[in-house]
Amino acid sequence: MFNEPQTALILGGTGRTGSLVAKMLTERGLSARTASRHGSDVLFDWDDTTTHADALAGVDRVYLVTPIMRVTYADQVAAFLDLAEATGVRHVTYLSTYNGDKAPQEVDIAAVETGLAHRQAITHSILRPAWVMQNFSDEHLPVIDGAITVPTGGGTETFVDAADIAAVAVETLLHPDAHAGAQYAPTGPQALTVSEVADIIASVSGRPVSHHDIDRDTWINGAVAAGVVPADYAVMLRWLTGAIVSGNGSTPNDDIEKVIGRPPTTFRDFAQRNVHAWNAPAEG
């Protein structure tokens, strides 16, 4: 089916995994076209369907990143995939979420997974990664006034490097037939509390860092009130944090090593590689 590789379309092409997927694919000899609203090879806007056909021209595989900061998008994705099928796409690798098949009904993560599985002309691979380590080095869970503020109830998560997620995605895009129907859950090698993450950041940066395990409702309501997330996204935050609080956060597995042939990155290695993120002037 894929004897003559063409071009992979990378949605979210400037994002944490998308930019890495594009770079790695190019290094491996497959043409990669990044697509997003700003800064990519082509303009792509989920809400402007006139941008979809140009993005898909000459493409035979897609790295699918759904609209961010919203919970309802299954119909938009289905329409895009209809067009993708019609224009020659034969494989889709979907960036889902850990336990995405068990997401709340109000969130369209599982609906997209199901929709992909029902398509006959397109093979697919599903990636359900744990929380990414980059959350701690960017604006998602920054160190502010010496603390990382997020509700976890002392629970653990196997934080995973976005580069490892991208490496798994690359294999599925380079060898779609070998990964058709695959469901991978990329995780880090260790289940860590956020307090343990804070200790590692402190040890590599030389800065005191602690975990402020805030009340979950206070944190979610504050994010909505501050305009950080839209009000309907609260259900997503409640689900994601609730898994950790209840002790049902992600657990280590061998999916990364099984697909790319090496163990996943440890949080300490990630922190040492990104120490500059915490050595910048403190916010607060």
Rank of each mutant, 00 (worst) to 15 (best):
L116K: 05
K102Y: 12
D101N: 11
P104D: 07
V92Q: 09
V107M: 11
R119M: 03
K102I: 04
R119K: 11
A103M: 11
G100K: 04
V107H: 04
A111G: 07
I122A: 07
A103F: 12
A117R: 13
S96F: 04
A117V: 00
T97Q: 15
S125R: 08
A121R: 15
E106R: 13
H91L: 02
E113Q: 15
S125E: 07
S96G: 06
R119E: 12
T97H: 15
E106F: 03
R90F: 12
A121P: 07
Y94K: 08
E113C: 03
V92E: 12
D101F: 03
E106N: 10
I109E: 09
S125V: 00
L95V: 00
A110Y: 07
S125G: 10
I122Y: 09
H91C: 04
H118N: 13
G100P: 07
N99M: 08
A103V: 00
R90K: 15
G115Y: 07
T93Q: 10
T123Q: 12
P104F: 04
T114L: 14
A110G: 01
D101C: 01
T93W: 12
D108P: 02
A110R: 14
S125Y: 11
Y98V: 00
Q105L: 04
I122N: 09
Q105M: 01
I109F: 08
S125I: 03
Q105V: 00
L116T: 01
L116E: 11
G115W: 07
S125F: 03
H91M: 06
A117H: 05
T114W: 14
A121D: 15
Y98H: 13
G115N: 08
A103E: 01
H124Q: 07
L116S: 02
G115D: 03
I109Q: 13
K102Q: 15
Q120I: 05
E113Y: 08
K102W: 10
H118I: 00
K102P: 02
E106H: 08
T123K: 07
E106D: 11
A111E: 14
Y98A: 05
V92M: 06
I109D: 06
Y98K: 04
P104V: 00
N99S: 11
S125P: 02
A103D: 10
H124K: 04
P104N: 05
A111D: 15
T123F: 09
D108V: 01
H118T: 12
I109V: 14
L95F: 03
P104H: 08
N99E: 13
V92H: 11
A103N: 04
Y94R: 02
T123I: 10
E113V: 00
V107G: 03
T93S: 12
A121M: 12
R119H: 09
T97Y: 15
I109N: 06
L116M: 09
P104K: 03
Y98C: 04
T97M: 14
I109W: 11
E106S: 11
A117E: 14
V107F: 13
D108F: 02
T123C: 04
H91G: 02
G115I: 00
P104T: 00
H124G: 00
V92G: 02
A103W: 06
H118L: 07
H118R: 14
V112P: 02
Y94L: 06
